[in-house]
Design a protein around this nucleic acid. Structure first.
Lengths: 333, 333
DNA sequence: CTGTTAGCGCATTCAG
DNA sequence: CTGAATGCGCTAACAG
């Protein structure tokens, strides 16, 4: 394991130039003679030289690293989102370091400390609920951070995301417009996610006399959706629609309903949330709410890089979700 | 943005000790008086001191960072795997930097260069097909790397994964045992993945007279599975089984078959690959091959950390996949 | 356009 | 058990 990497001074002596000039070339400074530049570049290639990131970071106090802490990566909506962040950062020479919090505030705090100690210059957090120690940690060091997947115009911390409350309300309103008056709402663990909480609240806000809205909490996976719909059916056969706060749950509901001999959407309508990539391929194609996960990822990444490079302040931005009408919801006469 | 982070010398002057002692405490050296240690720790807390990672990396030439380059994160099997890597690394104070190659060798090479330039000390690669420049890059610097998701006992580069060829062969053998003689094999883009190629080869190896095995290539998503099964049905109505080289494809096949009025498994059996978390919740529960994605992630991570810490050589290790019999495959009389 | 010089913050000899 | 001194590799003024 002869770790023989070329150093800047090797390139300097190889070319007979000074290390300052090498540094200029490596950093794309314009005040370098084209010939000199070429000579340096050739020597770099020959010596297989790559600037030492630690030395560079130490000297500039910039690591070009941004951290994202997400509750889970095993839900496609996060995967899409993380992929978008990574893409955007990579295009600009930044790197993504990732930590998974399992929706646990303590785990998140520990991870943040570690990532800071790794040189992360900015943090992307999910949701708006975090340990106050976490904020202290960031604030004391002047490390910027953003909340994503949520939109709250009154938040002191910039949010970049969608309005979960409003979206859920729109979903219920939509179902009401379609004539549904008895709806089972399926959702994941509420105490693990303020997004879920906001959606529940939004749904309730659409309540009115003559509207029956029952909530079923379950695990956030297909099996959970299936179990929850069975449970709902056991409580009442009158539901004409199941509103699922994730497409994953909706897929489970589809299967559960099938097992119960219900046909979709004729017996029961099913509506999802997320617009995962398979939701259109499902039978019947799932009516759902498209969440701009990809756009959210690239927006967050760009803004953070801008802030780091130019000091441009973070712009809270609301991304709009949109109901995608497909075939899993029917109009009741 | 007053970036006022405490430095080691602040802690030193706060405690009246030398920076060497602070350093010792921060690195858990044992030759420090317990009282002194406590005094230092208190000061660290008070000053919110965290060692500067760049300085530390520069001084030790260790970044405690490991890179993984994966083709995509939007397929659950990778998500599970990445989560396992991250968990294992995090438990040991290491960080994961992630890059997504989109199955493009050039993108991969560029990403590797960037990650090296970020201080990654070891690389986790997917599959065995990579640019030779990539190997040069690593070899010249003595940076260790592993191939994952594949097992090849003859590979010069250590592999940690499962034998895709053998697993696919076992799948076909299994279907033959169940009496199937006409099988549609659905798979993703073959030129993008040597794992897919190996599976195709394995399936073919199980061929024999009287066995009809047709291959359908499609996109690696639910819509792809659906389209492919429709295509297969258009070519022949005689298939008694669909072997899908990913559960994602199998889910699509399930829906496609449903649309075509076929019932599963009575009219057509469906077999998957991966054992994604929803595959048991599907109706009917999917017979599939369990791939030890999680175990693979933690094994790779542990081995690489060991190598970095103690120099322990990488141990090529074969992880075993296993057929999970559920209800989507029926025995033909 | 190019060279010289001084740190960046820490780990690590070597003394004591 | 603790302190003083050196250098890790690079960038950023400042000269020239």
């Amino acid at each position: 394991m002869t770790r023989k990497v070329g150093r800047i001074r090797d390139v300097a002596s190889e070319t007979g130039l000074s290390i300052a000039t090498i540094s200029r070339v490596m950093n794309g400074a314009k005040n370098v003679n084209p010939d000199t530049r070429k000579r340096v570049l050739d020597a770099c290639k020959k010596l297989d030289y790559l600037p030492n990131p630690a030395a560079r970071a130490l000297s500039t106090s910039k690591s070009k690293t941004i951290a994202a802490i997400i509750p889970t990566i095993e839900h496609s909506v996060f995967a899409k989102y993380v992929a978008a962040i990574e893409n955007t950062l990579a295009e600009n020479g930044y790197s993504l370091v990732l930590a998974i919090s399992k929706s646990d505030l303590e785990v998140e705090l520990t991870a943040a400390r570690k990532l800071l100690g790794m040189g992360a210059e900015a943090f992307i957090l999910s949701g708006a609920t975090h340990s106050s120690d976490l904020f202290d940690l960031f604030d004391r060091r002047g490390v910027p951070y953003v909340f994503t997947s949520v939109w709250d115009k009154d938040s002191t911390v910039p949010t970049i995301g969608y309005d979960n409350r409003s979206l859920a309300k729109q979903a219920v309103d939509y179902l009401k417009t379609k004539g549904h008056r008895s709806i089972a709402v399926l959702h994941g663990p509420a105490q693990e996610s303020d997004r879920t909480l906001a959606r529940i609240e939004g749904a309730k806000a659409s309540g009115e006399d003559g509207l029956r809205l029952d909530f079923y909490e379950t695990t956030l996976d297909v099996a959970g959706g299936k179990a929850a719909i069975h449970q709902a059916l056991a409580i009442s056969e009158d539901y004409t629609a199941a509103l699922c706060f994730s497409d994953v749950l909706a897929l489970g509901a589809l299967f559960g309903l099938g097992e119960a001999g219900k046909s979709i959407p004729d017996d029961v309508s099913v509506m999802g949330f997320d617009n995962l990539d398979w939701s259109e391929a499902v039978v019947p194609p799932l009516t759902t709410i498209n969440l701009p996960a990809r756009q959210m990822g690239s927006t967050v990444a760009s803004q953070l890089m801008d802030l780091l490079e130019t000091g441009a302040p973070l712009m809270p931005t609301e991304l709009t979700g949109k109901i995608l009408e497909r075939q899993s919801v029917v109009t009741l006469k």
